[in-house]
Simulated assay, not measured.
Amino acid sequence: MNVTLVQSLESAVPTMLFQQRHDDHSSAIVERGLTVQSSFNTVCAIEYLKSHNVDPKVIERVLLHPDQRRKAPH
C-alpha cells in the first residue's frame, strides 16, 4: 500500500469520528432522547430515538457511551 495513502487515511480518521453535526433536526431529536434517558430510563430513550429513525449505531453511542458523544458548540 502506498505510504502517502496510509498517512492520509490515518489523518482522516479522527476528523470523521468527531465531525460536528450540521443537521439541527437530528441534533434536537438526539438531545430529546438524552433528556428522556435522564428523566425516565435508557429503554424509553432507545424507543424514542428508534421511533424517530435514528441509526442504531448513533443510539448506542449517545446513550451507552457518553464519552463518545459529539461536543455541543458553545
Rank of each mutant, 00 (worst) to 15 (best):
E10N: 09
S27E: 11
S38C: 09
I59K: 01
L64G: 11
A28D: 10
K71T: 12
N41S: 05
F40V: 10
H74W: 05
E60Q: 14
A28H: 11
P73A: 01
I46A: 14
S27L: 15
S38A: 14
E31D: 11
S38E: 11
Q37S: 12
S26C: 15
D55P: 01
M1V: 03
K71V: 10
S8T: 10
P73C: 00
S38T: 15
S26E: 13
N53E: 11
L64N: 07
P73T: 02
I46H: 14
L5F: 08
D24T: 03
V54T: 07
N2K: 06
A72E: 06
R70D: 05
D23K: 00
S39N: 11
H22W: 05
V3A: 07
F40I: 12
L34D: 04
L49N: 00
V36M: 07
V36W: 04
V43F: 13
V62N: 01
S27T: 08
K50M: 11
M1C: 01
Q68L: 15
A12N: 13
R21E: 14
S27A: 12
V3T: 02
I46S: 14
T35G: 11
S51R: 00
N2C: 02
P66S: 06
V6A: 11
S26Y: 05
S8C: 03
H25T: 07
I59E: 05
R70C: 05
Y48M: 02
R21V: 05
T4I: 08
D67Q: 08
Q7R: 14
T42I: 06
L64K: 10
A28T: 11
H52F: 04
K71R: 09
L63S: 05
F40E: 15
L64P: 00
S39H: 10
K50Q: 10
L5G: 02
A28Q: 14
V54Y: 02
D55K: 08
P66V: 03
P14E: 10
V43T: 07
M1S: 11
N2S: 08
V36E: 02
N41K: 03
L17Q: 14
L17M: 13
N41D: 12
F40R: 12
D23C: 10
H22R: 12
D67W: 03
V30W: 02
R69E: 01
L5C: 06
V3M: 06
L49R: 04
E47F: 02
E60W: 04
L63W: 01
H65L: 15
H65N: 14
V3W: 05
I59A: 03
H65Q: 15
D67G: 08
D55N: 15
S11A: 10
K50D: 04
E60T: 04
V3H: 04
T42H: 01
S26K: 12
P73M: 03
Q7G: 02
V62C: 00
A45G: 01
Q19C: 03
I59S: 02
S27D: 09
L64S: 11
E60G: 09
F18S: 12
E47C: 03
